[in-house]
Amino acid sequence: MSSGAIMRRKTIGFLGRSFLFAVTSVAAVAVFAIILFIARDALPFFRDRTSLEFFVSKSWYPSHTPPQFGAAAIFFGSFLVTAAAVILAVPSGVMAAICLSDILPFKARQLVKPVIEILAAIPSVVYGFFALTVVAPFLQNAGEWLPGNIEIASGVNALNASVILAIMALPTIVSVSEDALQAAGRELREGSYALGATRSETLLKVVIPAAFSGIFSAVLLGIMRAMGETMVVWMASGNAAQIPKPWYNLLQPVRTLTATIAGDMGEADQMSGSAHYHVLFVMGLCLLLFSFGCNIAGEWVVARQRKKLRGE
């Protein structure tokens, strides 16, 4: 090979590597830029308002004079809706993944998995529309024939939002968990059978523990999906900035962080740099930090699990 050809090949290799590096950098830099800009617009809020009011007070009256920015009820709304969605979606999602990976025949799995994944492709505003026009009237009428004749005055409430969020988180949980269970491998399962374990013992004591870190990641992704979803909660949760009475009452409307940001953005005056504008960025920053926390926790669990599997 001539030296010219070698040079050319080296140059092309260098250019290729540079290009890939640049593309990767864009993603990394974008993350830092987002944090930086959100923090820059969030911090001025605490210049003339206390964090105590923001985190402890329940009075959210941003348009009143003087305005009140107590976000405790909104934080609780986000928590309640997310927690309920996780409680609904995680057990069913993980069980569905186990069923797909180890119980259903191969052909059925090939049919069912894409159908579940279609759920992830539906735009969230369509889910919101569904929540508003189908789930809400259904819930309102459901109260009458429930035991105890519970009065569900408004079908637009925390439960409605949670149910829809659970459906939206399902495909992520099912798909990622199923991949983790598959990755546990045939050898592991056959080894277990060879030792005389039954199918259920193999599943519960060998396959699921082996796939635990993957299932955990799936659950985290599902939580983040539910926490960050905006359009559906804006349409289905009722947006009342209150802590339900009693607090676990899912049949009352609540307001979430994401819906507050979406709903108030137009009103908050950017030019005059009002507290209302900055408080929305504080909420954005809190959501971002929460996602970061989830990610780091996920990494940590996965790393620990890997160590354990290697027998260290």
Binding site: A73, L132, P137, V156, N239, A240, A241, P253, G263
Partner: peptide, 18 residues
């Protein structure tokens, strides 16, 4: 504080209808 908020006039009408 338990009042529901809706993003459009049409949305209010729709909620009241149902």
């Amino acid at each position: 504080e338990s009042a529901e908020y809706t993003g459009s006039n049409g949305g209010v009408r729709q909620r009241v209808q149902m």
